[in-house]
């Protein structure tokens, strides 16, 4: 039941990323700077921190695969980064206690590295159009997504905490 709700949330976010948010971004931000909505990634990072990284790995794989199928030129690029980033995020947390600040920092770094991996993957197959790598153009994306994560932190964590015992430490 709870997993069904989670799946519905993820599907809704997935639809929103392509439709409502695109219109909203075009209206409000325009082309002043680039902002990519990565709300799905944020939720999967939360899942990996609160429900275990293996589950998050597979959820991310499916989520990324759908992005690749619907929008992408290459199948596998987003599936890879969406699966690996949440896994690594949780791996780094074996030695820390979870609190708001640390979770938000994780989201920031996670989204930022996700964009860099995304660039690398597409550059590998020559899909970036000769655009050179610019580390600063992902900062707005990372910041705004962290901001969104701060907003949804409270409801999402309380929901995830009801789903399972907190942070089952899986065997390495």
């Amino acid at each position: 039941m709870k997993w069904g709700i989670l799946a519905t949330i993820l599907a809704g976010v997935f639809i929103m990323e392509g439709t409502v948010l695109q219109i909203f971004i075009a209206e409000v931000i325009g082309s002043a700077f680039h902002f990519l909505p990565r709300f799905g990634l944020i939720i999967i990072i939360f899942i990996s921190l609160y429900l275990g990284r293996r589950k998050a790995f597979f959820i991310g794989l499916v989520y990324g695969l759908f992005i690749d199928l619907l929008y992408g030129d290459v199948i596998g690029a987003y599936a890879f980064s969406m699966a690996v980033i949440p896994y690594l995020c949780a791996l780094a947390y074996q030695y820390f206690q979870l609190n708001v600040l640390l979770v938000l920092i994780t989201v920031f770094i996670g989204v930022y590295i996700h964009e860099i991996i995304g660039y690398g993957m597409l550059d590998l197959f020559g899909l970036t159009g000769g655009e050179s790598f610019d580390w600063s153009q992902y900062i707005p994306t990372a910041f705004l997504n962290t901001f969104i994560a701060a907003i949804i932190y409270r409801p999402l964590t309380s929901f995830l905490e009801t789903m399972g015992e907190r942070r089952i430490d899986e065997a390495v």
Binding site: E17, G18, T19, L21, Q22, H34, L36, P37, I67, L70, Y71, G72, D73, E115, G118, Y119, L122, L127, T128, G129, E131
Partner: peptide
């Protein structure tokens, strides 16, 4: 138009 790709390089519209 029913969707746009939420990505940087794939300027794709559905």
């Amino acid at each position: 138009v029913i969707a746009r790709s939420p990505e940087r390089w794939n300027h794709t519209v559905i």
